[in-house]
Design a protein around this nucleic acid. Structure first.
Lengths: 191, 191
DNA sequence: CAATAAACATACAATCTGTATGTTTCTATC
DNA sequence: GATAGAAACATACAGATTGTATGTTTATTG
């Protein structure tokens, strides 16, 4: 064969992450055993524990990959921006698109907080989406608002986005939720 | 001693639920072992598995107890209602009060969805808070709105409430979050 | 071409969950 | 109030899982 160590590492890490993602998505973190993961990935537990400190570290790696994919998708779309309102609505739509990939809401919004805790899971969000959202909201409501208020609003709207994404993947009427999001944002303009 | 069976059952069930609550709150469901629970409760695993089908059933029982406590607290306060807006804001404040009991957000908003799944966890919500909230929102925005839109709005506002409760327990400025909630609701009136 | 390290494999110890089986305590009925 | 039966509890066990320790193979480096 003659693969370099870097290639070997990359290949097995990827195989493990992809296998883990599949199993985590349809059984959940707790009900997925490491022997199953390595079987699905075609490696042994030795390889798993060589590349990851423990099962939780593997989960964290799959989450990071997933969050990056979401961020990447959003980045491709949100460039053309008109009014602050339009920008936010486009961003929301892009977020819903990105989160529509099967299993994504489960991984990022359901399992992640429980497995990693509010803080660590929130940190992943913060690195990715939250900054953009906060900036958008700041544009929307005007620079006048103080920091605490802007932070609170961002947090609440972010939660609404997440819930909408969940509802949409669960089979709810997407248009109804996009309209509801728009209502919330429109309400803020006046306030 | 001479305790009736009903008394014995009630006592051990309660001891188990309270012990489980303590441990679930500060270690999480996954990191809490049944031997620890029964030790804390002063019974044996035999008793646990006699009264509950499995560990998950015990968790469900603690959750139900917790959700009832929240509902009970809210019921005591939300009786005096002026305008729809006032009613919702009072309800929100009552909810934040109720959720300020240590561990409650973790149990109800973090662990529950992950352990029981979106559906079962959502069902507990639906039995308790959601109906009231939906009625309040219906009063706020007028009866004109169609069902899908009202449902979506309820869902989103409910998510915002939950996130606010989490932020508040995590140490955020409560007033900022209550104001933000008020902003969201006020925005809906006009829309 | 050694010698070292990285990548992987296997074996093991500790723990945990759920069940099966045994014992004690109450309840019901004669 | 003695006895049969059931409910409540205790103990013992089987299977599975996690993380570690110990080998073995494959690549890298001087």
């Amino acid at each position: 064969m003659a693969r370099s160590n870097k290639e070997r590492t990359e290949a097995t890490r990827l195989a493990l992450i992809e296998a883990a993602r599949r199993l985590f998505v349809d059984r959940g973190y707790a009900d997925t055993a490491t022997p199953d993961i390595v079987a699905e990935a075609g490696v042994t537990r030795g390889a798993l524990y060589h590349h990851f400190e423990d099962k939780k570290a593997l989960f964290r790696a799959t989450l990071e990959r997933e969050a990056e994919a979401v961020a990447a998708h959003i980045d491709t779309v949100s460039l053309p921006a008109g009014s602050p309102r339009e920008a936010l609505l486009l961003g929301a739509a892009a977020y819903f698109d990105a989160m529509a990939v099967p299993g994504r809401t489960r991984l990022l919004l359901l399992e992640a907080p429980a497995v990693l805790g509010f803080e660590s899971a929130g940190a992943i969000d913060r690195d990715n989406a939250e900054g953009t959202l906060k900036a958008g909201l700041s544009d929307l409501i005007g620079k006048g608002a103080d920091a605490a208020r802007l932070q609170a609003l961002t947090d609440l709207i972010s939660a609404a986005f997440d819930r909408a994404a969940i509802a949409i993947e669960t089979g709810a009427d997407r248009k109804a939720y996009e309209d509801a999001v728009a209502s919330l944002l429109d309400g803020l303009v006046r306030a």
